[in-house]
Amino acid sequence: MPRLAAKIGRANYAGPYRAFGLAIDRRLELAALEATDQAAKLALRSIRAAMQGAGLGRLGNGLGSASDLSSGRGIHRRGADAWSASGVVFVRSRSARTRGAIEAYTGGADIRPTQGRWLWIATDQIPSKAGRFAITPELYVKTGLEQRIGKLIFLKSVNGRPLLAVENVGVAITGQSRSARSLKRNGTARKGQIAKQLVIAFVGIPRTSRAARVDVQSIMRAVQADLPRLAAQALEKVSS
C-alpha cells in the first residue's frame, strides 16, 4: 500500500531569532506528525468505504493504518536542514487468502490453476462454498458431496472445455439453484425433486482475469493533496 509523506526544509535561523525559529520548527514538526497521522486514518476509512461500496463486504477490515506519530518514532531527520513525517495504509491480515483477495481487488489479477491444467468453476447446481472456501473438485470429495450428490465424471463439451458432471441426480422441481441431491436407493427422486440423467457440476477454464474494483492509488493521491489542509488544521491545534 502507498505511503503518505510531508517533507519540510528547515530554515537557517541565526542570531536573536534562533530560539524563535526553533520554536516554530518544533510546532511545524508536531503539526506534520498530526497531519500525516490523520491522513493515514482518512485514507484507511476511504479505502474501506470504497471496498464496501464495491461489494467486497468486510474485506477492508484486513487493512490497517500507521504513522510516525502512532508508532512513537517522531519525525525523520534528513541531514541538518530537512525532515519528514509519514503515514501508511498497510495489509494487516496474516491470512494469505485475505492478502491475495486485497491484492486482486485493488490491483487486478490473472488467476491460473495451481494444480493441473484447468481452473474448475462450480455451476449453480452444487454448493458454491465448502466452509469459507470456494468449492473445488477436491473439496467436493473431501467434504462428502460425492456421497450426498454423486461421483464426478469427466466430459468434454462442444467448445473443447472439460466438464465435471454427476449422473442420475435429483434437482428441485421449482428450479431452485444448488439443489442437486442423490437419488433414493430405488432410483427415484426425493420429495420436491425430479430426476435428471446428467447435471454439470464444474466447468474447466485455463485461467481467468479479475479486474481491480477499488482504485487505491486515486484515493491516496486525493488524501496526499489534502495534506496541506490537514497540516494547517494541526498547526492551529498545536499553536493554541
Rank of each mutant, 00 (worst) to 15 (best):
residue 150 G to V: 00
residue 101 A to R: 06
residue 205 I to P: 04
residue 15 G to I: 06
residue 217 Q to F: 08
residue 41 K to M: 13
residue 195 A to Y: 04
residue 8 I to L: 14
residue 90 F to Q: 08
residue 207 R to E: 15
residue 21 G to M: 11
residue 15 G to N: 13
residue 148 R to V: 00
residue 117 R to I: 06
residue 176 Q to L: 10
residue 214 V to Q: 05
residue 27 R to N: 13
residue 126 I to A: 07
residue 212 A to I: 04
residue 64 G to W: 02
residue 154 F to S: 01
residue 133 F to V: 10
residue 161 R to Q: 13
residue 176 Q to I: 02
residue 8 I to A: 11
residue 75 I to W: 00
residue 94 R to E: 15
residue 63 L to G: 00
residue 140 Y to D: 01
residue 235 L to V: 09
residue 22 L to N: 13
residue 95 S to N: 12
residue 237 K to C: 08
residue 41 K to C: 04
residue 90 F to D: 06
residue 148 R to D: 13
residue 44 L to Y: 01
residue 215 D to L: 08
residue 162 P to Q: 07
residue 205 I to A: 09
residue 77 R to F: 06
residue 93 S to G: 09
residue 148 R to E: 12
residue 18 R to I: 11
residue 225 A to S: 14
residue 46 S to Q: 15
residue 53 G to P: 04
residue 70 S to T: 10
residue 43 A to V: 05
residue 39 A to F: 01
residue 134 A to Q: 10
residue 102 I to T: 04
residue 98 T to F: 05
residue 93 S to T: 15
residue 63 L to S: 02
residue 78 R to I: 12
residue 27 R to S: 12
residue 108 G to F: 01
residue 208 T to Q: 13
residue 129 K to T: 10
residue 42 L to W: 00
residue 120 W to P: 00
residue 39 A to Q: 02
residue 166 V to S: 00
residue 16 P to Y: 07
residue 55 G to H: 11
residue 184 K to I: 06
residue 182 S to L: 02
residue 104 A to K: 03
residue 33 L to F: 08
residue 74 G to W: 11
residue 110 D to L: 14
residue 101 A to T: 04
residue 55 G to F: 08
residue 149 I to W: 03
residue 26 R to S: 14
residue 189 A to G: 08
residue 159 N to V: 13
residue 58 R to K: 12
residue 234 A to R: 03
residue 116 G to I: 06
